[in-house]
Design a protein around this nucleic acid. Structure first.
Lengths: 231, 231
DNA sequence: ATCTACATCTCGTCC
DNA sequence: GGACGAGGTGTAGAT
């Protein structure tokens, strides 16, 4: 990895056009050829970048550029799409190279998977008398997050999201349409469960007879802790 | 901005839990306190990070950590959510600080807005005799990208996407359902227009009587260029 | 290889 | 400030 701090201007031409005026920035060149242009603020997203696979070419400035104070022109070209990132270097303030080796990678413990596990373990949150049939109940168009039965023995399909958006309601609707054609399951009720449910999603769901359930992740973890402390 | 190359392991506890085993990585500390952990590959996304507003605290290792070879422990705490990023430093290979100043920011020239403008200007691409009613035609559930009339005077609602996915078909379907209840507009035909249309989206659209239209962005820009050259 | 759904999404924009 | 949609989305998993 090479780290360069430089006064530069940057132009990108690809799926969109973008321009960064002259300023001092960090240029990160990774060993796979990718380039990131970072400012000293904002979030983790660079101001501009080129994703791998790509190739960096360094050229001297033409006369006009040289007159304007440019000392080097970097052209980063994407190997497949031919997108280009052009970095015009005015002054290099720092330049160092480092050997990092390959990274073992991130080990994650996600949220939606955890929510699903917690809800399956505390299936009564769906309502009194509910029982779990199974998680990831497979259908022809994909797995339903949770299939349960209510107190009366009726099927209940649960779609789980961290954030309940319209997409999730549409997804559950497709599952319900399909499952309600299966005489072994029908009638299947729908529950849309999420940590937060957007008003538009709630309206659409309720309009379609789908029940909305807001989950409190921390409280559910609390249930787990209580349980583990009891044993 | 401070740049540190170090052997380190990283733990994040917040909306999820994540762990990075010991390896050599770049630690970028921005002046707003945010921290980015980058490996020498992948894309522009860091392996792990803490977004501002947050505070970095450096502490000596406890005995166990010191025995394991840890020389410093960085704790980055988010000011609002209390999410924590803990970086255990084993060996520092590089450490430098740089003054970058504030960045003037990126100037973008977007795609979907441009597509919409181009299609509105060349509304005949919808078919002979089509006329534009208006862009961003407002409905109760949001704006339809383009409303037009066909040669026979019938309403045509156009949903525009760069990539035509199932979501877009669902969105257009909702608009059509609503608009077809309005006697001033009904019957309203649907056109799903995109630079590329996924096979599954095309199938769903055609099954619902929605016409699919693949747009050639470069050709449309060409139309514009031709026109501007003519005048 | 393609498609689908998730993301510590991020980021703008509109209300 | 919240909601909503787009992203040069990236990323992981399933088909």
């Amino acid at each position: 990895m090479r780290l360069v701090i430089a006064q530069c201007s940057v132009d990108y031409a690809g799926r969109l056009s973008a321009h960064l005026p002259l300023a001092t920035r960090l240029l990160m060149i990774k060993s796979d050829g990718s380039v990131l242009v970072h400012s000293d603020g904002g979030s983790y997203k660079p101001l501009n970048w080129m994703s791998p696979p790509c190739a960096l070419q360094v050229a001297p400035p033409d006369d006009d550029q040289a007159d304007a104070g440019v000392t080097e022109v970097w052209t980063v070209t994407h190997a497949k799409t031919a997108d280009q990132l052009i970095v015009s270097i005015y002054e290099v303030l720092h330049d160092s190279a480092h050997e990092l080796g390959i990274d073992p990678g991130l080990i994650k413990d996600g949220v939606e998977a955890h929510l699903q596990k917690l809800l399956a373990e505390h299936i009564h949150l769906l309502g009194d008398g509910h029982t779990l049939v199974r998680r990831e109940y497979m259908t022809a168009i994909g797995p339903v997050d949770i299939l349960a039965r209510d107190a009366a023995g009726g099927s209940v399909a649960v779609e789980l999201k961290r954030r309940g958006d319209i997409d999730g309601v549409e997804q559950l609707t497709r599952y319900l349409e399909l499952m309600n054609r299966d005489p072994h399951l029908a009638p299947v009720a729908g529950v849309f469960a999420a940590q937060i449910i957007k008003p538009q999603a709630r309206m659409l769901a309720e309009d379609r007879g789908i029940r909305c359930l807001v989950l409190d992740y921390d409280a559910m973890r609390g249930l787990d802790d209580t349980q583990s402390k009891l044993f």
